[in-house]
């Protein structure tokens, strides 16, 4: 989760990083079919990263997702 926060800090006008307690917000978790944590949902499900990952991995996922949008 800290990694997502680090990402947001670099461009807070466009990036938002939100930690979500999955049990407390169970409807949201169910909507994104969360089964294990941490689970990072990117742009409401356009991509996702399960587990704790290094910086380069998350960056790569974000890059691939945004390329797909173009």
């Amino acid at each position: 989760m800290l990694l997502a926060y680090q990402f947001a800090m670099e461009n807070p006008a466009l990036i938002r990083a939100e930690g979500i307690e999955a049990m407390e917000f169970s409807e949201l978790s169910a909507r994104h079919q969360i089964s294990g944590v941490p689970d990072t949902v990117i742009n409401d499900g356009a991509a996702r990263v399960v587990g704790a990952v290094p910086e380069s991995y998350l960056l790569n996922e974000v890059q691939q997702m945004l390329q797909g949008v173009k």
């Binding site: 990036i15 939100e18 944590v37 742009n43 974000v62």
Partner: peptide, 8 residues
């Protein structure tokens, strides 16, 4: 925009 939602 980029939204990262980290479920924990």
């Amino acid at each position: 925009p980029l939204a990262l939602q980290v479920f924990v």
